[in-house]
């Protein structure tokens, strides 16, 4: 019972801060709402007994990535950004379309059933179990992820490099 209340709190704040992130005119406010979002997602992970993921969420997203975002935002011209429109003139249609999709998904999930109990799906959430799984069962996907990061790095340097050789 108490779990559900806490979950509802986290879920409500997540949705609210996600909406605020994309609707605020001032980019700095957007980034700060995103920080709120990341904190509450970490809270959901704690509720699911995934302490390690919660810690990673805080350290990587809230700690590192968001600070980078803030740096970039500070380099932008905040005044000009906050005067530009957040959406184009089609936004009522887009919101309506999104709501239809949302209702469809909600209806299908509400009428469906999940036969498995939570514990049956994932009962190993500690760092040790995750590490063992990553280096044994999911070794190949783990290594592909490292190549993906490398490609991202090469691509970013390639596209952003100032001098054209």
């Amino acid at each position: 019972m108490i779990n559900q209340i806490v979950f509802l709190y986290f879920a409500a704040v997540i949705v609210l801060s996600a909406v605020l992130t994309i609707t605020r005119r001032n980019p700095v406010h957007s980034v700060l709402f995103m920080l709120l979002l990341f904190f509450h997602i970490a809270g959901v992970f704690v509720l699911l007994n995934a302490e390690f993921l919660a810690a990673v969420q805080l350290i990587v997203y809230a700690g590192a990535i968001l600070i980078l975002y803030l740096f970039v935002v500070m380099l932008l011209n905040v005044d000009r950004e906050s005067k530009s429109d957040r959406a184009n003139r089609f936004w009522p249609w887009i919101v309506a379309f999104g709501l239809v999709i949302f209702a469809e998904i909600g209806l299908l999930v509400a009428r469906g059933s999940f036969p498995l109990e939570g514990g049956q799906i994932m009962n190993k959430t500690g760092i040790k179990e995750l590490g063992i799984d990553l280096y044994t069962k999911y070794l190949v996907p783990f290594e592909i992820a490292s190549v993906i990061l490398l490609v991202g790095l090469v691509g970013a340097v390639m596209l952003a490099k100032k001098k054209n050789d």
Partner: peptide
């Protein structure tokens, strides 16, 4: 998981 990661590796390279 392999499907997703393979797809991302392909897609990220093609974006660049």
């Amino acid at each position: 998981i392999t499907i997703y990661l393979g797809l991302e590796l392909m897609a990220l390279s093609i974006y660049v």
